[in-house]
Design a protein around this nucleic acid. Structure first.
Lengths: 206, 206
DNA sequence: TTGTTTACTAAACAGTGTTCAGTACATTTG
DNA sequence: CAAATGTACTGAACACTGTTTAGTAAACAA
């Protein structure tokens, strides 16, 4: 009686269909401008159908946020293989930037928008596992730096948070257009300089 | 013939009336949840009236974003009077945090939301003067630190951007609920520790 | 007392997320 | 096989949203 299994498979496929259409539309048009109706049109189903597979729009956004984390972890992989822990750290920073530049909508969803987090708040079972897992990569790297004597920090978690904040802040200010006071031509160079300066500072810093 | 002046005064008062009602509603309910109709109801006018004083919702948000900057600059004033430039820098950082904690909706509008910046994009006359002015305070302070020999940085602007990024990143990650993986009790302490570590790092750093 | 300008609004437009009663088909049961 | 049950889906509605426009009533100028 594989009938119930087939049904489950079909259900899974439908979820995937919705998710892929949604993702495509989002990355094309931006999250703010895509409606449930747009997604429904794209897959040629009624809007109500989507609600049979996702509780609400936030849950759909959360699902795509998850896809984003998968992608990001994949793109971080090469950095994690570098021998020197400090090189590893720097490369992780660079890849954080690059991911944001190349996937601004996805990055927004993962680290800036509130909507997907609102979905998390409704079901108290997990505490943003995706974020936790990704952040753990950074903590590990920082700990390696400490162990290798590059840093003299005591607490790898605190140091990791500081480093994440610095890199994220730069990215977020740019993505949310808070660096508009700099001429467009200088902007990217300025950001890179700020990042480089940060790296130099923590390297010599402590 | 003071009649035209009275009219202008009335127009200005009406703008103020709208702005104050809007601000009150926004700070009570959050920006996402307040509609033009809500504001209109609050001041007992029709929704269409608001469009006689503001081009669209983004412009209204931009006007409130401006009020936020006035408030922020006021709250920064005491920090700017400190004798030691590095103390000044640290105190500015602390006040950035505090402003964000005490006025999360306003902070969001000033540094995270896209809507008010979309308003800016439409009229190319100025390049976010409010942001530029506030950032200039930081640059000046960093330059003072360089002059006093606390920092050996070359470029005050780049250093200021790095510092702003670090402080802002921490704040933004918190406000947008990206530190949910830490238990609520630890969260604030962790943020303070990360800030302190950053301060120590740049102090000894270069 | 005209004519004109100004300030305002009712109503509509085109959209949004979401819900629910109802339908048509697949599956199970007698 | 036919009847009963279960499931997947949808049309249409609800209560909103930002925004525009035609029209009105009052204030002002001639």
């Amino acid at each position: 009686m594989g009938i119930v299994e087939r049904k489950e498979r079909e259900k899974e496929e439908m979820r995937k269909l919705i998710l892929e259409a949604a993702q495509k539309l989002f990355l094309e048009t931006g999250f703010e401008k895509v409606s449930i109706r747009n997604i429904a049109d794209a897959i040629e189903y009624s809007p109500a159908t989507i609600y049979l597979y996702f509780k609400d729009k936030n849950e759909l956004l959360y699902a795509i946020h998850n896809i984003g984390f998968q992608k990001m972890v994949e793109e971080f992989q090469p950095a994690l293989n570098l021998a020197d822990p400090f090189d590893r750290l720097v490369e992780m920073g660079r890849r954080y930037f690059r991911f944001a530049f190349e996937n601004p909508e996805l990055f927004d969803l993962m680290f800036i928008m509130t909507a997907p987090m609102d979905s998390l708040a409704c079901r108290d079972d997990d505490k943003w596992d995706e974020g936790r897992t990704a952040f753990q990569l950074l903590i590990t790297c920082v700990q390696d730096c400490i162990d290798a004597g590059v840093f003299k920090y005591q607490d790898a978690e605190v140091a990791a948070l500081m480093i994440w904040s610095a890199v994220h802040g730069n990215t977020a200010l740019f993505l949310r257009k808070r660096l508009e006071m700099f001429e467009e031509s200088r902007r990217k160079q300025l950001m890179e300089d700020a990042f480089t300066l940060f790296i130099e500072t923590i390297h010599k810093g402590l």
